Computed example of a mutant assay.
Amino acid sequence: MTEADGEDKLVRERKEARLSAYATLREQRPELFVNPPGTAYEILLDRADQDRVAREVGELAVAFGFPEECADIGVVYRDPYVTLVRDAVRFRSGRVNTYIRFVTGAPGGGAAVLPVLDDGRIVLLHHFRHADRDWHWEIPRGFGAPGEEGATTARRELLEEVGGEVTEMIRLGEITTDTGMHGGRDQLYLARLASSSFAGTPGPEAREEGIDAFRALSPDEMRAELAEGHIHDGFTLAAWSLATARGLLGPASGA
């Protein structure tokens, strides 16, 4: 076998492995591969179509200086938290291309929780995030375990990152964090905590996760922070918006 033959064999094995993982994901998560009536991007599930799209897009990728595997169809990356999928799709015009998206490991996604003390103050965490290499004021959140209910995920993340005694857990709704890339939804909750159980400073486990401080803000202080653009986290913005819309937070001064 020549060196070129060996490389061709490795390429075929790589593509087959990714398509095999794709087929397994389709069996486990069929909802991710639905083509509803009137869909704007039809997922092509026929192997001949997939091979044709991969070949055409791969040639184009190479012409622009990218590796040919940028066009591989299937599960192109996977770890315990994230699965990165590249689909072959047909647009309404009939044009074909690839479309990449990521899905969480568990069907239920993750959860975030807005902690509210019994005196009405909202607890935020000063959390360093690796993705943008910056600090954020935000609420607790995390990935769900396989088969885990959103409320269980939310309670676990709250106790790990803030601690305290939970007196009530209220489901707020769902959030799709990035409809252009993320194939899933996360659950949002509001948790009421006993003020007497709130430590005020992060413990060792929270610090290990990159949390170095807490703030407990009154509803008016929270509104001011939002208005001044000091809070950027989408989960926090969404949870606060839903809680406000449902009248679960204290009224503004003078209201």
Rank of each mutant, 00 (worst) to 15 (best):
V89P: 01
P251V: 12
A224E: 14
R47V: 11
G110M: 14
A40H: 08
G254W: 11
G184L: 05
R55M: 03
A154M: 10
G183F: 14
G150V: 11
E13P: 01
R141C: 12
V96W: 05
S20I: 01
L190F: 07
E148P: 05
S241N: 06
T152G: 06
L158F: 12
Y22Q: 05
G142K: 02
A252N: 05
E56T: 04
P219R: 02
V89Q: 07
G144E: 05
E157H: 08
L44Y: 06
F128V: 08
E160K: 12
L45D: 06
L10Y: 00
E69W: 07
A23C: 07
I43W: 00
V76H: 03
F235G: 02
P146H: 01
L114Y: 02
G164Q: 15
P202D: 11
H126C: 09
G109W: 05
L158Y: 09
G120S: 11
L45G: 01
Q50I: 06
P30H: 06
A88I: 08
E59C: 08
G184S: 08
G180V: 05
D118L: 03
F91M: 14
V96I: 03
V166C: 15
L114Q: 00
E59W: 08
T39K: 11
E208G: 14
A255R: 10
I231Q: 02
D132F: 12
E221F: 03
A145N: 12
G105L: 07
L19N: 02
A151F: 03
F143N: 07
V62F: 00
A61K: 00
A48V: 09
L159T: 13
V166P: 13
V75W: 05
V162F: 13
L190E: 06
L117C: 02
L84Y: 04
A255V: 10
G94A: 11
R133G: 09
R29P: 08
H136P: 10
E228L: 13
E208M: 05
P36T: 15
A23E: 15
P219L: 09
T104A: 12
L84A: 13
A151Q: 11
V53L: 10
L19R: 15
G184R: 09
V11M: 13
V166Y: 14
A154F: 10
V76M: 03
Y41P: 01
F66Q: 11
G94E: 06
L114G: 04
E168P: 07
R90C: 05
E225T: 00
I122S: 05
W137S: 15
A238R: 13
F128G: 03
V82S: 00
L237I: 08
T98M: 07
A238W: 04
L25N: 00
E31V: 01
W240P: 00
S20V: 03
L10E: 14
I122A: 08
R52K: 11
A239H: 11
D178V: 02
L125K: 11
V85I: 14
L193G: 05
A213K: 01
L188V: 01
G108E: 13
L124K: 09
A216H: 08
V11Y: 08
R185L: 07
I43E: 03
E16I: 01
I175N: 01
G142F: 09
F66Y: 14
D118W: 09
E27D: 14
E160C: 08
I100E: 15
A255W: 11
G163P: 12
N35G: 09
P30K: 10
G250K: 00
A255I: 01
D212G: 06
